[in-house]
């Protein structure tokens, strides 16, 4: 049986993605079509395409800002990774890290993700969601690159082990990045035009 209302989560996603001023108009169009008998699968497809198209269009329009978001994300997380490594060595040397060194390392990586998400969101308030998605994609690219580099550098470890550790690292950093970016900064109001970006024009 066809549901009377369109998928609530899909509508919420579309209205909160906030990539353009037309999000509310698209939501209205999709609702109109859904009421004329389109399926929930069709609705979901349309929402996901609208989000992807909106995000890529936003990134294309602000290439400089997107590049900055990517660089900030990489720099902070690389710093956190190195800091975590150094801190772990120091703590281990002083006998303070006998049991869970990896856990401590992940905690520092999580914090790195959180700080980078927060900074990217604060630097690009007008285009927050698109820039956060660009940062998340950059992190994914970095994780994939890390698998290749680590595999090339350590021939003794099986690929599966390296990939597993990198995926866990990526998920830990991404969780921090999403929490820092989405929850610690105010969300733009659905349907409202984007606020003027305080950063200089590129």
């Amino acid at each position: 049986m066809k549901p009377a209302k369109p998928p609530v989560l899909a509508t919420w996603l579309l209205e909160h993605a906030r990539f353009s001023t037309t999000d509310s108009v698209i939501a209205g169009d999709l609702l109109e079509e859904f009421n004329r008998g389109r399926s929930a699968a069709w609705y979901w497809r349309q929402v996901l395409v609208a989000i992807v198209v909106g995000c890529t269009s936003e990134v294309r329009h602000h290439r400089g800002l997107a590049a900055r978001a990517v660089l900030v994300t990489w720099a902070i997380n690389y710093g956190a990774l190195m800091l975590g490594r150094e801190a772990m060595i120091e703590l281990f040397r002083h006998g303070l890290l006998a049991y869970h060194p990896q856990l401590a390392h992940w905690a520092i990586c999580f914090l790195g993700g959180l700080v980078s998400g927060l900074i990217v969101a604060l630097l690009h308030r007008g285009y927050r969601n698109a820039m956060l998605l660009a940062g998340a994609a950059a992190l994914l690219g970095w994780a994939l690159m890390a698998i290749v580099i680590l595999k090339a550098g350590s021939l003794h470890h099986p690929l599966l082990q390296i990939a597993g550790a990198t995926i866990v690292y990526y998920l830990v950093v991404l969780s921090g990045f999403a929490i820092g970016g989405f929850f610690f900064t105010p969300s733009p109001k659905p349907g409202a035009p984007p606020t003027r970006d305080p950063s200089p024009a590129f």
Binding site: E33, V49, I51, V53
Partner: peptide, 28 residues
């Protein structure tokens, strides 16, 4: 001419499903 009829017109004439988001991106 707004989103829904434009999509329907293209779908009818071409016979393929149209994404409303892509139509708006093009119109923008």
């Amino acid at each position: 001419a707004y989103g829904v009829p434009i999509c329907r017109e293209i779908e009818e004439q071409t016979g393929r499903e149209v994404a409303v988001g892509s139509v708006y991106a093009t119109l923008d």
